[in-house]
Amino acid sequence: MLLQFIHSHTRLAAVPFVPEISLYQADEPIALWEKTEESGQEQPPPFWAFAWAGGQALARHILDHPHLVDGRSVLDLATGSGLVAIAAARAGAHPVTANDIDPYSLAAAEANAIANNVALETLEADVLDTNPAASVILAGDVFYSREMAARVLPFLRRAAARGCLVLVGDPGRAYLPTEAMIRQATYEVPVIESLESVPTRQTTIWQTHPLPVRG
């Protein structure tokens, strides 16, 4: 049922900023968003149907700098479409775990992985109170609400304190805690104007540190 819904409301298309990867994406994002809201079921918003700026930038960064993940275990937090996880797998990471709490997201990630000829493991769970064993944590566009930021930041800091490489892709969301981050790169990323109100977003790759960065 999940795959049928995904295939019925999306089509396989190249990601604008990462054209070597194709995803099942919604042609009419607002219509799909409204459909999930009106379904009468407890279905989360269809974050999995779009290539968000943070994920696009992070996927681009990983593909352009494969040494960051090559041969290492990776957890893609709040994977959405699976874009970042797929980029990590293509860059040589193994194993790559795509994590989300939305079963539609993980179904989309699996379908997208097959379309791109890579292997992903999926994990449907809230991992923010745990300590995953991956050596690299990737997180695209996760600081979109105050509540999410308050839970994600401690998780990322704990991972960094264990020696994990923690990279975040963020297009300037309001709740990004830059005091805990070091800027690594910045990109101009094409986005869906009907969702973002602009055609491109300046998106930064940040490395998370265990403690606030001073200076």
Rank of each mutant, 00 (worst) to 15 (best):
Asp170Phe: 09
Thr97Tyr: 04
Thr36Trp: 07
Asp126Gly: 12
Ala53Val: 10
Ala31Leu: 09
Arg158Asn: 14
Asn117His: 09
Glu188Val: 11
Leu176Phe: 15
Ala59Pro: 00
Glu110Met: 05
Arg173Gln: 08
Tyr104Asn: 10
Arg158Pro: 03
Ala174Leu: 14
His94Ala: 14
Ser135Ile: 08
Ala88Thr: 05
Val74Ser: 04
Val198Gly: 03
Leu2Thr: 14
His65Val: 02
Pro171Val: 15
Phe5Tyr: 11
Leu83Gly: 12
Gly215Ala: 04
Arg151Trp: 07
Ala31Thr: 08
Leu63Pro: 02
Thr200Ala: 10
Leu195Ser: 06
Leu32Tyr: 06
Asp141Gln: 03
Asn99Phe: 10
Ile30Gly: 02
Val127Gly: 04
Ala53Leu: 09
Tyr175Met: 01
Arg158Gln: 14
Ala31Val: 07
Ala159Met: 09
Ile137Asp: 07
Pro171Thr: 05
Ala13Phe: 00
Arg158Trp: 09
Val166Met: 06
Gln43Pro: 00
Val127Tyr: 02
Leu58Trp: 06
Ala93Lys: 11
Glu196Arg: 11
Ser73Asp: 02
Asp126Met: 00
Gln184Cys: 05
Ala53Gly: 13
Leu77Ala: 01
Pro154Ser: 05
Pro190Ala: 07
Gly140Gln: 01
Gly80Asn: 12
Val189Phe: 10
Thr130Asp: 13
Gln184Arg: 15
Ala174Ile: 02
Arg11Met: 07
Thr36Leu: 14
